[in-house]
Design a binder for these strands. Structure first.
Lengths: 113, 113
DNA sequence: TCGATACTTCCATAATCATGGAAAAATGGA
DNA sequence: TCCATTTTTCCATGATTATGGAAGTATCGA
């Protein structure tokens, strides 16, 4: 993962509404939620939510899929793990250090290695 | 960790210069680096670096200590772990899911539990 | 094809943030 | 105390970001 992508991902999360959306989707798991349900759950105006979702998708943290007339959004667990990996890379330069174990969700079957 | 603090921490990291500074300090370990060495290593103007370091300290991600006429900055590994914990909290709402293990650096002895 | 529902794009406004030069503090040695 | 070194604060400029109303697009059922 490149520095530029990481900055984009972090910026995407560094905003109250988007952080709330992302956490909601992390908790929802791979099934996700429709835009409407997210708007309802968090009380965000549709146009604002759309702007924020676009931002999260652009950052790679969230995926969208069309399902009849709903657009379903879900968290991208793999990118989340890469992000954490990048931040903690080379921690303490060789000194003994417990590095992070991926937070890969066991129910996220969409991206086999 | 509260949502507001998390937004502040993420915003602090969502900027090329600050991300570079933070990673440098993560790699440096608890000993850290002086402001001057950071400026030199990353090629950032002193006033800009000072601005960015203040931002990182304010976010709680970085600590500073005076050492003779140098100001030494170091990463705060504990806050980093809390941040990651917050982002992945309640992942997949009860579904079987490997949650993250703290990235606590074994050489960071400054904050006993 | 019509109407209702679900979302997105466009746009103007207001707010926040990044940058580096110049001046000001703080520290320590002579 | 005086000077050199190290870092911070002040400030003006330019750039980016968040917001929600209104209009546009897409999907589905009848």
């Amino acid at each position: 993962m490149e520095s530029k992508s990481v900055v984009i991902a972090l910026a995407a999360l560094a905003q109250e509404s988007r952080l709330a959306v992302f956490r909601l989707l992390i908790q929802a798991g791979p099934e996700g939620f429709s835009a409407g349900r997210i708007a309802e759950a968090l009380g965000i105006a549709p146009s604002s939510l759309s702007f924020h979702l676009k931002e999260l998708v652009h950052a790679g943290l969230v995926r969208s899929r069309q399902e009849s007339r709903y657009v379903i959004y879900s968290a991208n667990f793999e990118v989340m793990n890469e992000l954490i990996g990048f931040l903690t890379e080379n921690c303490c330069r060789g000194a003994p250090c417990t590095t992070s174990t991926p937070i890969r969700c066991a129910t996220d079957q969409e991206t086999p290695e």
